[in-house]
Design a protein around this nucleic acid. Sequence first.
RNA 1: GCCGAUGUAGCUCAGGUGGUUAGAGUGGCUGUUUCGUAAACAGCAGGUCGAGGGUUCGAAUCCCUCCAUCGGCUCCA
Length: 503
Amino acid sequence: MIRITFPDNTVQEFEEGVTGLDIARSISNRLAKEVLSVSVDGVVWDVHRPIYHDAKIKLYTWDDEEGKHAFWHSSAHLMAEALEELYPGIKFGIGPSIDQGFYYDVDPGDRAITDADLPGIEEKMQEIVARKEAFQREEVPKEKAMEYYQDKGDQYKVELIRELEDGEISFYTNGNFTDLCRGPHLPNTGYIKAVKLLGVAGAYWRGDEHNKQMTRIYGITFPKKKMLDEYLQMLEEARKRDHRKLGKQLELFSFSQKVGSGLPLWLPKGAALRERLENFLKQIQKEYGYQQVISPHIGQKELYETSGHYAKYGKDSFQPIKTPDENEEFLLKPMNCPHHCEIYRHTQYSYKDLPVRFAEFGTVYRYEQSGELHGLTRVRGFTQDDAHIFCRPDQLKEEFKKVMDIILKIFEALEFDTYTVQASLRDPDKKDEYIGSDENWEKSEKAILETVEETGIEAKIEYGEAAFYGPKLDFMVKDALGREWQLGTIQVDYNLPERFDLE
RNA sequence: GCCGAUGUAGCUCAGGUGGUUAGAGUGGCUGUUUCGUAAACAGCAGGUCGAGGGUUCGAAUCCCUCCAUCGGCUCCA
């Protein structure tokens, strides 16, 4: 007998080799039907995997992320099996569960998989669901795993296995399809009652644009048909609230090919809305001690060479504007920072005058890649409610907190109630991609992390997400379609003042 | 930038396996009815079927290039 500890710390004895499913059944038949995965001493397992030792367990159903993920992960394997049956020789990359469903990256060789193929794949998946094929776990040594995929000719899996540590590697098999996988999975394909493939897309192998582009197939599944219908209904409702659609319907903004893509035209109603928003924001800025400044839309190229922007983005930006004077070049401003530095320079400040806070509704232009343009959320010309604070080191945290206050106040007023906060730090393995000294980076990252801790705001830390000149605290909100966008950002920059020689 | 899809009246869309004057709803305009809570009826206007090449006796329909949009990937100062 082994001792199983439940989340409420009660302990019960079971036969050795008992499964999560058995345990669920001992509690109630309903739970046995609903349980999708089980954590055993903190590791999420298949509910049908035998437990041979004393353990602390927790059962997961559809209501838990862990349960959903087992479900969708198994769905990815189900789709892979269907794909292999329909397209023999197709090669597989990775196929994880995601927040809403799952995907699998595949390399179909010479043929292309398009939206038109999805219904056929769905049909095949339903066939396999009807077969109720078990997901069987098997542990194999690394060399065996390698051999299997080398024989199969699946170079992507070979690459993945090569990077795994020596020791036992787990395979899962459903029907004729075997996949390298940590699990966990459902007991069998019969759990998956409703299937919908949502789209195909190109995706670079391992997220690197220098690698081959694979075909990613997105899908979602549910344990009940009705849940799928509700999901599709919800998607349709979300589409109605797409800001691009509303902008058109309400005559707020439009685009013209003659003006250029990514360059929004604000119609009278949109301009009126924007004016109200600006007035609201200016009022807050005033309350917090900001002075409004105004700077031109262009600046000498040298200004951006000094800031470092030209070296980093010059090649991929709107190209310099020439004047009748030879050797004279201007850049459309991609950022307001250098201009504000020059405004600061105009006046001589004593340390007693600090902090000095400049705010501007500054219009900037960035040559975004053509594939990135998206309504008003990703454009080539836009106006930021931007501000720069020049302060003493001892004032930094307090100023930072005040900016956080402002952002949260605005989010509240605009009813952005499901934002997330992200501390965007530099990638410690790619220090050469950032400007400035290690010392400056350490100081500024420390300042952000400490301030976050002092305020108690919940922030996730992301390495490699910093701007090239400094770390950021980013405030992200989701749009109607569930896509996340960075709206507010607070940055600590020790580099710029040095580069502009500001004392 | 990359992969895939799409591009027909102001808007939403149908049609199209090459063949006479390109359709609907809605919106617009004119008039009639009349007071209907997206008012009813009649009529009118509105499209070089994204742009440019090509194949053909003939192209909105087939081919190529480009542009834009959409779904993703990559990028995001």
